[in-house]
Computed example of a mutant assay.
Amino acid sequence: MQRVTVLCVGKLKEKFYLEAAAEYVKRFQRFCKLELVELPESRLPESPSPAEVQRALAAEAAAIRERLPKGGAVIALCIEGKPCSSVELSRRMEELAVAGKTQLTFLIGGSVGLDESLKRQADWRLSMSPMTFPHHLARIMLLEQIYRAYQISAGTKYHK
């Protein structure tokens, strides 16, 4: 059974996000072992300098690296990543499993994104869209797409 870890910078606070995440966590049980890891987001002033942003990204990257599972594939969600369809995501996840990558780790940065070093370290840079979304919403969207990918692989009617 594949293991999926979603490493997120920032904590869900809004009830509707928490409920949506809990629903997907429950749905995943028959497809994979899912672990959601929330890491603290660095506090920044209202108008941070580029140096302050870089320090925050570096601190968040260090926290991510401490929790990064060994082995497997790392997928960084970032705007400059490559977008793909739900079917392509499903196919790619299947290919990784066949290649022995039973651990998939998805990285979601905080409000200022992910450190460039993490993006370079990733096996795959994935973009959800050329649009910008709040990172909390991106987490729910990612969970739904991973769930959909498993449904596609299983041949269910969930994906139409």
Rank of each mutant, 00 (worst) to 15 (best):
G81H: 11
I152S: 00
Q121C: 04
A97E: 14
I108Y: 02
S85V: 08
F133N: 06
V87A: 07
Y147H: 01
S85T: 15
T102V: 13
M93N: 03
A58Q: 13
R91K: 13
S127V: 11
V53M: 08
K82M: 07
T102S: 13
S117I: 05
S111D: 06
L118I: 06
G71W: 05
Y150T: 01
A154D: 07
R65V: 13
H135T: 02
Q121H: 10
K70P: 12
T102Y: 15
Y150D: 01
L89E: 07
R55L: 05
R139H: 03
T132S: 14
Q145L: 03
E144T: 00
K101P: 10
E60G: 07
M131Y: 14
P69D: 06
K82G: 10
E66A: 12
I79C: 07
A56F: 03
D123Y: 11
E60Q: 11
E116D: 14
A59H: 12
G72T: 05
W124E: 06
A99Y: 13
L143F: 00
L126R: 14
L114G: 05
K119N: 04
Y147V: 00
E144R: 00
Q151S: 01
T132N: 12
I75D: 07
E66P: 09
M128H: 11
L114P: 05
K101G: 10
A122K: 08
V98W: 09
S129P: 13
V98R: 14
L107F: 06
G109M: 03
Q103D: 08
L68I: 10
R148C: 00
P50K: 10
L126C: 09
K119D: 02
M93H: 03
I79M: 12
E116K: 13
L68E: 09
P130S: 03
S127I: 09
S85N: 12
L114K: 08
M93A: 06
R139A: 04
A149R: 01
V87T: 11
P83N: 15
L142H: 01
V53I: 15
E116F: 06
R120I: 09
L126Q: 13
A58C: 11
F106H: 02
I146W: 01
R55K: 13
P83R: 12
G110W: 00
Q151G: 00
S129M: 09
V87C: 05
